[in-house]
Simulated assay, not measured.
Amino acid sequence: MSIRDGILYITYKPIPELDLRAAKKIVAGRLIFQRHQSYPILCRIQHLKNISDQALDHFATKGSLMTSAVAILTNNDYDQSLALLFRDVHHPQVPVKLFKSELNALAFLQDYK
């Protein structure tokens, strides 16, 4: 995680199975890192392999706390499917858009700073 120019960047490391327990740790760590200040998030999910339905639901609900919008970078069909499942099935409480270009993702997030 890093914060630059008012945007929180999150890059997931390779995780064989991201379950609810891991999702709770990730969200708690993010909130501490942010010092409870809201940010738009640029999320790189390229290294995620398997993520449980419960983890996706946690990210969509509790994971939306202190978040103004989320741009998800996708590089392949799997990333795209995972991001669509998150956005369209779990209905996060903030605007979420998918991008293949980091520049376009950052342009989207500018309105949510």
Rank of each mutant, 00 (worst) to 15 (best):
H58G: 01
D53W: 08
G6Q: 05
K25L: 13
V96W: 01
A107F: 04
Y78I: 12
D57N: 12
Y39V: 03
K62S: 11
L85H: 11
T11I: 11
L73M: 14
I51C: 10
P16C: 04
L20I: 10
A105G: 10
Y12F: 15
I72W: 04
A28K: 14
P40F: 04
L106G: 01
A83M: 03
L73E: 06
Q93D: 11
D79V: 07
R87Q: 14
Y39Q: 08
S101Y: 03
S38N: 05
D77W: 03
M66H: 15
D19F: 00
A28Q: 13
L85G: 06
P16Q: 05
I41C: 08
L31Q: 02
D77C: 06
C43H: 06
D111L: 11
K62V: 09
S38V: 12
G6Y: 02
K113R: 14
S64Y: 06
K25R: 09
Q80P: 00
L56E: 06
L65S: 12
S64R: 13
T67P: 12
L65Q: 14
Y78D: 13
L98F: 07
H91F: 13
I32F: 08
V89F: 07
G63E: 03
H91C: 06
S101E: 14
E102D: 13
L85W: 06
L85D: 13
Q46P: 00
S81R: 10
V96L: 07
R87S: 08
F108V: 10
V27I: 13
S52A: 06
I7T: 08
K100N: 14
R35L: 08
R35M: 06
V27L: 06
S101M: 13
A60E: 03
A23M: 05
I32M: 12
Q110I: 08
L8G: 03
A69G: 11
A71D: 07
A28H: 07
C43F: 07
Q37E: 12
T61N: 08
S2V: 00
S2N: 08
L103C: 05
A107P: 01
I72H: 11
Y78C: 04
L20M: 02
A83H: 06
G29S: 09
S38E: 09
G63M: 04
T61Y: 00
Q54H: 09
N76D: 15
A55S: 02
H58S: 04
V70S: 11
D57P: 01
T74N: 08
V89S: 11
R44T: 07
I51E: 01
K49N: 14
L18N: 02
S2T: 04
A83C: 06
Y112M: 09
Y39R: 02
A83Y: 03
V70T: 11
N104K: 15
L103V: 08
D79N: 15
S38L: 00
